[in-house]
């Protein structure tokens, strides 16, 4: 069965500017995918930006070449999906079940936010790349 859907992708250096530019892709995705409720757009946008930001801050190069950040976004009426690739990063372990940072801490909230914002999140190793897989079922907050 073919369903209406929208897709966007980006690849660039793993830096803050690529994460900033990702907002343009998300805006373009939402402009095309008018069927996605605002609450889902808001939650998924933040989850994707948090995961991409985690790559920029925490991913460690496996060799001398700098890490690249690639993002694939897909929206259909049932779910929103993202793949976020840390290309050239060393293997890593990400604790996706940790608690939110205490209130006086200035960092340590990104992973807990991702957990709260998506239906499923997986972090796995594919070749020379760490891959984040995010999925949010649309309308889950209304269920």
């Amino acid at each position: 069965m073919t369903e209406p859907g929208s897709r966007r992708s980006r690849r660039g250096p793993a830096d803050a500017r690529t994460v900033d530019a990702l907002h343009e892709d998300l805006d373009a995705l939402w402009a095309e995918a008018g069927f996605v409720p605002d609450s889902d757009r808001m939650a998924f946008t933040l989850a994707v930006v948090e995961a991409a930001g985690n790559v920029v801050v925490h991913a460690v190069p496996a060799a001398e070449e700098p890490i690249e950040l690639a993002v694939e976004l897909a929206a259909d009426p049932q779910r929103l999906e993202a793949r976020i690739y840390e290309i050239g990063a060393a293997p890593a372990h990400v604790d996706l079940t940790g608690p939110m940072a205490q209130e006086h801490h200035e960092s340590g909230r990104g992973l807990a936010l991702i957990q709260a914002l998506v239906s499923r999140v997986v972090f796995e190793r594919h070749g020379d790349t760490n891959v984040w897989k995010l999925c949010r079922e649309c309308g889950r907050d209304e269920a």
Partner: peptide
């Protein structure tokens, strides 16, 4: 995002 929130806390 959480980096912006961290800046507000700082």
């Amino acid at each position: 995002d959480s980096s912006g929130l961290g800046a507000l806390i700082g």
